[in-house]
């Protein structure tokens, strides 16, 4: 597959969010979010736990409904599309869950085959096998093909989770805390994999994290979410050198810990 260079990022919008609000009962989580993601761009959303990062990407994937605001993904307004259109859109969105969310009762092969068989019923066994082997090669885990999720390490589970989304060839990747709970060396391999996915599959990505190393390694742009609002946006160095007190507090906390 042809590789994409960082300079190739096209200024075509794939995600456009305007005035997004979301609350759960009395708890207001998102308070007027505006965000744009361009084609081929990796955007990191930094923020403390409970700041609404995961809620934001769950709204983009259509798992949660927004209370107010416009969420436009690949030209479709998430708030107003019907179920059929949402299913079509979801085929173009890959979602890597924080805990990988691999199907416990299925082997790695079955985990990878599952979305492909159900969405492309015309494919032959040979084509499915080829697709499974290809994505496993891409995440460098070919040897685990017949293993069960319980036999995999945390890092391997993350990579298989990413492979399961890649098998449907998504245009957008949403990563929820891709390096959470992993050792520093495994974090580096996951960061490298995120960049490889962007180059190889030409995806636009949102990476939710509070890991600064991950943000620096993977983000073309970084947005800082605090109390349901973006308080700063820019490249990593711009955010890092900001004088904004709340952002500096977040960095200080990261370095101390």
């Amino acid at each position: 597959m042809e590789k994409l260079n960082k300079s190739d990022i096209i200024k075509e919008q794939v995600i456009s969010i305007q005035g997004l609000y979301k609350s759960f009962g009395e708890n207001s989580v998102l308070n007027g979010i505006d965000l744009t993601i361009h084609k081929g761009e990796n955007v990191v959303i930094l923020g403390r736990s409970g700041s609404g990062k995961s809620v934001l990407i769950k709204i983009i994937a259509g798992l949660l409904k927004p209370d107010k605001g416009i969420v436009n993904v690949l030209g479709m307004d998430i708030g107003s599309i019907d179920e059929k259109q949402l299913l079509k859109l979801r085929l173009k969105i890959g979602f890597s869950f924080q805990n990988s969310a691999l199907y416990d009762s299925m082997s790695v092969r079955e985990n990878l085959e599952f979305p492909l068989i159900r969405n492309s019923r015309h494919l032959t066994k040979k084509e499915i096998d080829h697709a499974v082997e290809e994505v496993l090669e891409d995440v460098h885990l070919h040897q685990t093909i017949n293993q069960m999720p319980s036999e995999l390490s945390g890092g391997q589970r993350k990579r298989i989770g990413i492979a399961r989304t890649l098998i449907l060839r998504p245009e957008i990747m949403l990563y929820d805390e891709p390096t959470a709970g992993l050792d520093p060396i495994t974090c580096i391999t996951i960061n490298e994999l995120i960049n490889e996915v962007q180059e190889r599959y030409h995806t636009s990505s949102i990476i939710i994290t509070h890991d600064l190393t991950c943000a620096k390694a993977t983000g073309d742009r970084v947005a800082m979410l605090l109390d349901g609002r973006f308080v700063a946006q820019g490249n990593f160095d711009e955010i890092f050198n900001t004088e904004e007190e709340t952002v500096k507090q977040f960095y200080d906390y990261n370095f101390i810990n």
């Binding site: 979801r90 979602f95 869950f97 924080q98 969310a101 199907y103 599952f114 979305p115 969405n119 989304t165």
Partner: peptide, 16 residues
């Protein structure tokens, strides 16, 4: 357990 470990959500986002 599939619900709390987000396996059901994973099916939904895979258009299943």
């Amino acid at each position: 357990s599939m619900r709390v470990s987000e396996q059901i959500d994973a099916m939904e986002v895979s258009a299943i």
